[in-house]
Each structure stands twice: as structure tokens, then as C-alpha cells.
Deep mutational scan, measured.
Amino acid sequence: DIIVVALYDYEAIHHEDLSFQKGDQMVVLEESGEWWKARSLATRKEGYIPSNYVARVDS
């Protein structure tokens, strides 16, 4: 799995977006363009995230 960590807070604009806080970790489910589908490890919610707001966690 690709794990990313939030670099900034993000408040969902559309209902399919995923809100998150700086430091939150998410599993990337699908990478396509600038918006990635991800699942929050904390809340288990899924939605689209702006890929420029996150960084990959080296395992």
C-alpha cells in the first residue's frame, strides 16, 4: 500500500472529497492526475485528496 502523510489541513469542497488535518496518514487507493482517492487511517473514510497536499511515507 502507498501511505501518505498530510502536509497541510484540507477542508473538503465537494461531497466526494476527504477532509484531513496536517499529520494525518492515508492509504492511496487510486492515483489519477492531481486528485487521488484515499482512505484515512484514523477515520477509515474514503474520498478524493489533492495530491500536492500530501507526501509519501517511506516504509
Results as ranks from 00 to 15, higher is better:
residue 36 W to V: 08
residue 40 S to M: 15
residue 44 R to G: 15
residue 48 Y to V: 06
residue 53 Y to N: 03
residue 17 D to M: 14
residue 30 E to I: 10
residue 35 W to S: 06
residue 44 R to I: 06
residue 11 E to W: 10
residue 53 Y to K: 08
residue 49 I to E: 01
residue 9 D to A: 08
residue 26 M to F: 15
residue 27 V to N: 04
residue 55 A to H: 09
residue 19 S to V: 03
residue 55 A to Y: 09
residue 21 Q to Y: 10
residue 50 P to S: 05
residue 29 L to M: 08
residue 28 V to G: 01
residue 58 D to W: 08
residue 37 K to V: 09
residue 38 A to R: 00
residue 43 T to D: 08
residue 19 S to C: 06
residue 11 E to H: 12
residue 24 D to C: 04
residue 44 R to N: 15
residue 41 L to A: 05
residue 5 V to T: 07
residue 18 L to P: 01
residue 33 G to H: 06
residue 56 R to C: 08
residue 47 G to C: 01
residue 19 S to K: 04
residue 57 V to W: 09
residue 18 L to S: 00
residue 35 W to H: 07
residue 49 I to F: 05
residue 33 G to S: 06
residue 6 A to L: 01
residue 24 D to W: 04
residue 52 N to C: 14
residue 46 E to F: 07
residue 24 D to G: 02
residue 11 E to L: 11
residue 51 S to I: 08
residue 52 N to H: 13
residue 38 A to V: 14
residue 21 Q to A: 11
residue 22 K to F: 06
residue 19 S to D: 06
residue 34 E to M: 14
residue 37 K to N: 05
residue 31 E to L: 15
residue 44 R to T: 10
residue 52 N to Y: 10
residue 53 Y to A: 10
residue 35 W to M: 10
residue 5 V to E: 07
residue 49 I to M: 02
residue 2 I to Y: 15
residue 18 L to M: 10
residue 44 R to P: 05
residue 31 E to H: 15
residue 23 G to W: 05
residue 32 S to Q: 12
residue 3 I to Q: 05
residue 6 A to P: 00
residue 9 D to M: 05
residue 44 R to K: 14
residue 37 K to H: 09
residue 27 V to P: 00
residue 15 H to Y: 11
residue 47 G to F: 02
residue 54 V to M: 05
residue 23 G to N: 05
residue 33 G to K: 05
residue 1 D to G: 14
residue 57 V to F: 09
residue 44 R to M: 14
residue 47 G to D: 00
residue 23 G to T: 02
residue 36 W to A: 05
residue 40 S to H: 15
residue 25 Q to Y: 15
residue 4 V to D: 00
residue 32 S to V: 12
residue 30 E to S: 11
residue 58 D to H: 12
residue 40 S to I: 12
residue 36 W to L: 13
residue 1 D to N: 13
residue 43 T to E: 05
residue 3 I to G: 02
residue 11 E to T: 14
residue 50 P to M: 07
residue 5 V to A: 04
residue 7 L to S: 02
residue 22 K to R: 10
residue 46 E to Q: 09
residue 41 L to W: 04
residue 37 K to D: 01
residue 2 I to F: 15
residue 11 E to Q: 13
residue 15 H to M: 13
residue 32 S to H: 14
residue 48 Y to W: 15
residue 34 E to T: 14
residue 18 L to H: 02
